[in-house]
Amino acid sequence: MASDNIQIKVKRQDGPESKPYWQEFEVPFKPHSNIISCLQDIQRNPSTCKGERVNPVVWECNCLEEVCGACTMVINGRVRQACTALVHKLDHPITLEPMSKFPVVRDLHVDRTRMFRNLKKVKAWIHVDGTHDIGEGPILPDEERAKRYVLSECMTCGCCLEACPQFSKDNNFLGAATFAQVRLFNAHPTGKFDQEQRLDAVMGEGGIADCGNAQVCVEVCPKHIPLTESIADVGRQTTLQILKNLFFK
């Protein structure tokens, strides 16, 4: 029966330089199924609605429970993870597109290297003396831990950047995810030691001051990370830093 099938339109692209094109697929409806299981159905039967045999759709996924961040794509015009996009909650026909702010590798699979490069730029790590046993870590109240925990749930999925009007392929804006990581590491008793370097890194072109406060990042973040609060907080930290540099150094 036709009504038991789902129509899925996929924006495909054979390679980074190729032209995108659309293909339409039909997969059987199953209760509680998600976009991943639809794409898996297409793998098992890679033919379009017109009956044309095509290459299976290429996409990135791994954990399928929204902790790895891999399967992020634009579903019905909105960026999100494919694994938590339940079919019965979506408008039909469903459209799938790759994220537009990152170079497409193939079909729905994009290259998010830029995000990881940004983590290097802001030294998103804690510099320890070594891995040998030197006893307990710093003592800190659970409240502070809780504040850091929400930030450390960021899975570098790129939703916040895809939805950010300030972030584009041809600029070098660092974006909300990176700023939240700066806040995360600056909030750690040991991480604080490198605070100045981290703040310096977000004061250049594409840094914190380029944020236009559209605040879409926080709306689309699947982990509900307080991104806008983090941006303001890093804003405060950089303000104090520049004042210190200018007048008290």
Partner: peptide, 16 residues
């Protein structure tokens, strides 16, 4: 303890 020093946000006891 090492992982704690590396910044893992382990839940804390009342004493920290």
């Amino acid at each position: 303890h090492l992982m704690d020093r590396l910044g893992v946000a382990f839940n804390r006891s009342p004493e920290g």
